[in-house]
Amino acid sequence: MADPAQNVPFRGGGFRPEARRGAGLVVFVVLLLLIEWGTRAGWISNLTLPRPSDVATTLMELANSGALWSHMGPSLTRLVVGSAMGVSAGIGIGVLIGLFSLVRAGLIPLVAAIFPIPKIALLPLFVIWFGIDEGSKYALIALGTFTPTVVATYGAVDNVDRTLIRMGQSFGLSWLSIVRKIVLPGALPGILSGLRVSLAIGIILLVAAEMLGAEYGIGAYILQAGSLYDLERLFAGVVILSALGVLTSWMIGQVERRFLVWRS
């Protein structure tokens, strides 16, 4: 007699990321609880890590005393002004590089030369050029966000589907219409994902800029706490920076949801 029938063994599935709501939060909470437990039980010395609950208390005090806002205000202004300058210049130059061969040939080597320079190293120079006040801080953040934005933008313009551009030409659309209605919307997804990187770099440079000659600001606050080895305050500052990073990323996500509904 033939062998009894069996189900065909299943071999498919997997390799497909799925949304798992809350998993990120669980990792976060578990990690914090572990540290809390360790510091209380004593197997983490409080010289290495502060208690999460103490950091939370410090943050609360900071908020209640109003000191949080006197640090956040100047920091946010610097981040917004500096990255607005850097990002708008970056998108502008990036689009020009994407559209004109001469600009491309002239500027890509320059951008490649500026990109790897640690902008922090230029801070003393910026202080001389733009003054010790806000000017040098804006310039540092602007330059730091400029280069990644340029690279992302011209890459995005290069990746716009050429058949769409040919289509525009075949219907007799003007050059300006092609740029405005085909090239720019087509490059928007790439520009926005470049912006995520640029703004994160902006936050890093914000702190660097505030470590020199700033009385108020998250960077100044962290530097102060660090030199006093006040771990609770240092970590409170770091938490604020992380929150800032999450916030900018969320904001770009909102813009994407608003303008890129046409993507599947």
Binding site: T163, M167, F171, G172, L173, S177, K181, P185, W262
Partner: peptide, 27 residues
């Protein structure tokens, strides 16, 4: 006068059906 229809359609993915047609009228 000379108007193409392409193999891969060449529709702007960010415009609706009506928007894709209005694209060639706007100019």
């Amino acid at each position: 006068p000379l108007t193409f229809v392409f193999q891969d359609f060449a529709l702007l993915p960010w415009r609706s059906v009506a928007g894709n047609i209005s694209l060639v009228l706007e100019d």
